[in-house]
């Protein structure tokens, strides 16, 4: 199979705002995920990464409205609502959420939370389901007896592992990981990344990593999409984004990321992202862009190819090294 598992085209998400001023949180995002892909969605918090993923997975709430197209194996799932998405949920597309503490139900054991999503062919007994849950825990480097534990009895890293085990229970083809290492210490972060890396190799999983941390992205993913104010502003191989960022935002984001041993000053990006409840004219980043020119406030730049498999949305692309 070489066709994409997941095709997202021109996805838009709005949230109802007070007084009819809707927040346009995701604006025309498109991407493909093929088997074994390692894609990252990168950006500051509030840039629409998580909303994009929730929109793709059909997990938005009643205050959201959407447009565009999401196809799984060529089958449209966005417009069909919950019923259309149901057969793919957890089976083909599963997700590991950020903040493992609250992602697990505090009053149920880890095992029961894993077991409840195991595919039930025929009559799988409770005992067999728990055994299978134990195997999954072993797969992510935990002891099988942890099935009987409640989330609060596990450390943060262990909870994140349990979440990953739970995500594997449906034998997915694409695993979304939403900030899987936030709130973990550095050593545990590295272990979780390593685990995801190993699992992706062993199981042929495609991974979509959502992160604000470019350093993390480089360790796990080979392709990245940088998002700003709900829009994809640059997209390409992670290597290319590092060495030759074509959008000023990507460059600044990279400069704002601490890298061990790198001999360069750490800079922060001044200002804050624009409000999304009013129509944006021109480039959304121009207010914070060090290179902004007059034309940046006139029209919004489109994603255009700047190198093989590398696109950026900036009027000044040609000039940016």
């Amino acid at each position: 199979m070489n066709g994409p598992v997941l095709e997202v085209r021109d996805l838009n998400v709005w949230f109802d705002g007070p007084g009819g001023r809707d927040v346009h949180a995701v604006r025309g995002v498109s991407f493909d995920v093929r088997p074994g892909d390692r894609l990252a969605l990168v950006g500051e918090s509030g840039c629409g990464k998580t909303t994009t993923v929730l929109g793709v997975l059909g997990l938005l709430g009643a205050t959201a409205s959407v447009s565009g197209s999401v196809r799984v194996d060529g089958q449209e799932v966005l417009t069909g609502g919950d019923a259309a998405m149901a057969p793919y949920r957890w089976g083909d597309l599963s997700i590991v959420f950020q903040g493992a503490l609250n992602a697990l139900n505090p009053v149920r054991t880890v095992g029961s939370q894993i077991a409840e999503v195991l595919p039930r062919d025929g009559r799988v007994s409770r005992r067999a389901a728990l055994r299978r849950a134990g195997e999954l825990l072993e797969r992510v480097g935990m002891a099988a007896r942890n099935v009987a534990f409640y989330p609060h009895e596990l450390s943060g890293g262990m909870r994140q592992r349990a979440c990953i085990a739970m995500a594997l229970a449906g034998e997915p083809r694409v695993l979304f990981a939403d900030e899987p290492t936030t709130a973990l210490d550095v050593v545990v972060q590295a272990q979780i990344l390593e685990l995801l890396d190993r699992l992706a190799d062993e199981l042929g999983l495609a991974i979509v990593l959502i992160s604000h941390d470019l350093g993390l992205v480089g360790q796990l993913c080979d392709r990245a999409m940088v998002m700003y104010a709900g829009r994809a502003v640059e997209e390409g191989p992670t290597e290319g984004l590092y060495t030759a960022p074509r959008h000023p935002y990507t460059r600044l984001l990279y400069e704002a990321t601490p890298v061990l041993g790198a001999d360069r000053p750490l800079r922060s990006i001044g200002g804050s992202p624009p409000a999304l409840d009013v129509p944006l004219a021109g480039c959304a980043f121009r207010g914070r862009c060090p290179d902004a020119e007059d034309r940046c406030s006139l029209a919004e730049p489109a994603l255009t190819p700047v190198a093989p498999a590398h696109r950026a949305a900036c009027h000044l692309t040609g000039r940016t090294p």
């Binding site: 949920r89 999503v117 449906g170």
Partner: peptide
């Protein structure tokens, strides 16, 4: 959050 997880689990 765990309700969102449960929903994502289908």
């Amino acid at each position: 959050d765990y309700v969102l997880t449960a929903r994502a689990k289908g």
